[in-house]
């Protein structure tokens, strides 16, 4: 898909000789912290940007070939649409441009996400605007879905619905390119994951491999004085620190060892933290 793909903006190297191939029909997670070059990659795929050097092919064709976009559904990270359009206006306009009008699918997608397509974009909340963007991306049953931070701004129930939709499309044979800075999102959908950092691909692995290397932060609130010694030497624990009544742990891979060790103390609260990717993949990045 991408070969030695490089994009510079002035002196800033946004993407540095990226080599990446996505298999047809897979769900590929494209993971990296904000500013790593994920959106730049996507904008190159859609021909909004032109490579400084190297090349990209999308569904076997260069992105400059307009007809490729018949088969692409794009969900941008930040939804920006003319505020005077209604959802209906957007769907009609895009359907006409694509030459595919499927009212039944439009209605069923709107119903699934509880979207009223007669309201103007300008009157909609961020979450509802995102729904408009989701419906337009899936409307024409594309072969390739390019999803940039797809569930940011969606409430958990709708995130679930969205994940179901992606799984259905994947089962139908669509290829999914899922970009995110959140491991949990990618984890639920992707089979294979590429980790991007500062414009370079740090690794491409399958999800199990990634899970075994990902770190998480756990705080255990103990009844009584906390003692970190209980967790020292337990499988997976890379850091154990006690602070009055709380034990702070950093665990790599499975937390099974920690769960078993915790049975020896009285835990009354178990708090896990979303760790950002930088921290999560210390190993990979080193």
């Amino acid at each position: 898909m991408a070969e030695a793909l490089t994009k510079r903006f002035g002196d800033v190297v946004a993407l540095d000789s990226l080599d990446l191939t996505i298999e047809s029909g897979e769900v590929f997670g494209y993971l990296g912290p904000n500013g790593a070059g994920k959106t730049t990659t996507i904008r190159l795929l859609l021909d909004f940007l032109r490579p400084t050097s190297g090349s990209v092919r999308v569904l076997g064709r260069p992105p400059t070939d307009v007809s490729v976009r018949h088969k692409i559904g794009y969900l941008p990270a930040e939804v920006r649409l003319d505020p005077s359009y209604t959802g209906e206006d957007v769907f009609r306009f895009f359907a006409a441009l694509r030459g595919v009008v499927d009212r039944t699918r439009q209605t069923s997608l709107c119903d699934r996400f509880g979207l009223d397509p007669t309201r103007r974009i300008g009157e909609l909340s961020t979450g509802n605007r995102r729904k408009v963007a989701i419906v337009q991306a899936f409307l024409h049953g594309p072969d390739l879905l390019v999803l940039d931070e797809p569930t940011s701004g969606l409430d958990p129930l709708l995130q679930e619905e969205f994940h179901r939709l992606v799984r259905e499309e994947s089962a139908r044979g669509a290829t999914v390119f899922l970009s995110s800075h959140m491991l949990p999102e990618v984890e639920q959908l992707a089979q294979r994951v590429g980790v991007l950092r500062a414009g370079c691909l740090a690794t491409v692995t399958d999800l199990d491999e990634l899970r075994s290397r990902a770190r998480q932060r756990i705080d255990l609130h103990i009844d009584g004085p906390a003692d970190a010694a209980v967790f020292e030497g337990v499988t997976g624990v890379v850091e154990a620190r006690a602070d009055q009544r709380v034990v702070h742990l950093v665990v790599e891979g499975s937390v099974d060892g920690v769960v078993k060790a915790a049975s020896r103390v009285r835990v009354h609260r178990w708090v896990t933290h979303d760790v950002d990717l930088e921290e999560m993949f210390l190993e990979l990045y080193r």
Partner: peptide
């Protein structure tokens, strides 16, 4: 103006040059 507001990008994600 359309490009600055961002409305142009989604239009150009369609099969239109």
């Amino acid at each position: 103006g359309a490009e600055e507001d961002g409305g142009l990008e989604l239009v150009l994600a369609n099969p239109v040059s």
